[in-house]
Every structure is written in structure tokens, then in C-alpha cells.
């Protein structure tokens, strides 16, 4: 599965909240990252979409940081949800319920758009904590297809 700009832009939520579309490099900067390897690719800031909602129940929900469109070689489309943990200083503090809620609530937010949510959920960590985070996320999110990647691995895998 690889990034698809058209799917990202044509997603119903992107059309409804175009002000929350942003270049991925800028999102990384906002999340405290120090590497900006992308070109002009954009993603929808899902947390901002949630915050913009007038529904108080949705406002209270947690969500992944961004969503982007992806497609496979057969043009099957999906939405990839991604959360940045670039400010994480101690991998042990990663909360299982927080991660599970983010995945669950993001899926609720994206429900009904006609594009399914991809069954791998990406968490992006700094290189310094990557391996230990991979292990901890794997232990805490058993049964959930969480994928822990560095910024560069994310780019290599999905772009």
C-alpha cells in the first residue's frame, strides 16, 4: 500500500475540513520532529478535525494525529491512520488505553466515508526509542495491528 494524494484530498472529511489538510513535513514539525523527508505530500490532521466538531461527545474523544489515503497495486483504497509519539521520553509511559482509544475513536470518526480504515495503525517514534517502543507497543496492543516506525521508515514503507 502506498500514499495516494487523490484519495487523501477526496476523502469526505478532507472536503469538509480542507483547512486541516497540511503538508506532512509541517505536521511533523508541529509534533516536535526534527526530520522532514517528505516533499509536498499532504495529510488530514485528524485531531484537528475532531476538535472542530460541534458534537461534545466527539470533542471529548481521542484520535490519531493524521489520516492519509493509500492504495494498492489493484487500486484498492484505504485510509491510513498515523499517530506521532516524537515527544515521548520514556517508552514505558506509553499508555495502552490511550493508544487503544485513539485507534477506536479514529475509526469512529472515519466511519461512513466509503473508504475503509487500513488494518495497520502507525505510531511514529524517534530513532532513539524506536526498538523499545516497538516491543512495548507490541506487548500492550496485542491483537491490534500496531506498527511502530521511524519517520524515515514510514516514508520508505508507504511512499
Amino acid at each position: 500500500m502506498k500514499y495516494c494524494q487523490q484519495t487523501t484530498l477526496s476523502h469526505p472529511l478532507s472536503k469538509r475540513f480542507p483547512q486541516h489538510l497540511s503538508e506532512i513535513n509541517l505536521i511533523i514539525r508541529e509534533e516536535g520532529g526534527g526530520e522532514y523527508p517528505f516533499n509536498k505530500e499532504v495529510a488530514l490532521k485528524l485531531d484537528k478535525v475532531k476538535d472542530s466538531s460541534e458534537n461534545p461527545h466527539i470533542k471529548k474523544m481521542k484520535s490519531m494525529d493524521m489520516v492519509l489515503g493509500i492504495k494498492d497495486e489493484n487500486n484498492n483504497l484505504s485510509s491510513l491512520i498515523v499517530d506521532f509519539k516524537l515527544d515521548c521520553k520514556n517508552a514505558v509511559n506509553i499508555s495502552e488505553s490511550d493508544c487503544r482509544d485513539k485507534i477506536k475513536h479514529s475509526k469512529i470518526l472515519l466511519f461512513g466515508s466509503g473508504i475503509s480504515v487500513y488494518n495497520k495503525y502507525v505510531f511514529i517514534f524517534n530513532n532513539a526509542l524506536l526498538e523499545i517502543s516497538r516491543r512495548i507497543i507490541s506487548q500492550r496492543l496485542t491483537n491490534a495491528s500496531a506498527e511502530v516506525l521511524s519517520i524515515n521508515e514510514f516514508k520508505a514503507n508507504y511512499f
Partner: peptide, 25 residues
């Protein structure tokens, strides 16, 4: 005091498990 390189080796086991596909919640 860094354990990242150690976990890099440990996590090969995760990759092996992932070869069989993760189960959806």
C-alpha cells in the same frame, strides 16, 4: 545505558510473528 540496540535484536521475534499476520481487534 541505552537498550535500543539490544531490543533491535529482540524485535526480530516480533517480525517473525508478524510474518504470520496480526489479528484484527
Amino acid at each position: 545505558t541505552d537498550i535500543e540496540p539490544i531490543f533491535s535484536s529482540f524485535n526480530i521475534s516480533l517480525d517473525k510473528i508478524n510474518e504470520y499476520g496480526a489479528t484484527e481487534e
